[in-house]
């Protein structure tokens, strides 16, 4: 997860596409939720949610 956030920040720094910050922030939180709950019992709910 930390690596992903790091990649995202470097991507922003390199391509300077600041329009995407709010979208990436929200989608990363949602995606992060899926990844963090992966393999757990709540995964079917989170995973199928999206």
């Amino acid at each position: 997860m930390i690596e992903f956030i790091n990649d995202l920040l470097m991507f922003m720094g390199h391509h300077k596409n600041y329009w995407l910050i709010p979208i990436l922030l929200v989608l990363s939180i949602v995606g992060g939720l899926i990844v963090l709950t992966e393999g757990s019992v709540v995964a079917p709910f989170i995973y199928t949610l999206f």
């Binding site: 979208i23 929200v26 989608l27 949602v30 019992v41 079917p44 709910f45 995973y47 199928t48 949610l49 999206f50």
Partner: peptide
């Protein structure tokens, strides 16, 4: 069964969440 329950709930919640975004 647990997974199907999740799928059923997602039919309602998924469009809501993606609509908001």
């Amino acid at each position: 069964g647990w997974h199907q329950l999740g799928v059923g709930l997602a039919r309602i919640t998924s469009p809501v969440i993606f609509s908001l975004v």
